[in-house]
Amino acid sequence: MLPYPLLSASLVIMWLALNGFSLGHLILGCVVAVFASWGMASLRPAKPRMPKWYLLPKLVGIVLYDIVRSNIAVAAILVAGRGRRFRSGFVTIPLDLQNPTALAVLAVVVTSTPGTAWLEYNSLSRTVLIHVLDLVDEAEWQALIKGRYEALLMEIFE
């Protein structure tokens, strides 16, 4: 009946929070949640496994800190404009990470940090192509992505 209990529960809570609590909305929200979880089940997504989910807050903390830092850096570059010359470029990074969920998380992290954008993942050669706005040293970026995010993600997901 309920293939994704967590999803259904959060849908009901969201429905009630948006519409205000009443018996009618509770019933309507439950109906919506049940049908949505059936729809989700028919898509058959791979269930993500996170053996070490308690490390997630550490990842979130690191990412928030990096986003603040790179916001300041990118804003400085854009404000300085033509005065300061910067060089942007593509970097290819070999990855050891194979879990699809972990790769998706890594893609979201890299793209939502200003200054780096995830372009494409090549599953044959297991490399990812990213574009960096202020590229000083390629090896530095490879070490940053691998050491700062990939190691932690591998620990969480594998």
């Binding site: 916001n71 990118v74 939502s112 954008a117």
Partner: peptide, 29 residues
Amino acid sequence: SLALIGTIGFVRLPTFYERIHAPTLGTSW
């Protein structure tokens, strides 16, 4: 201000791959 700076960068940067970084300022902080 961050949203505005991001959009200014979006208008001023010369190539598409550089421009794609600018709106993330507005969408993150």
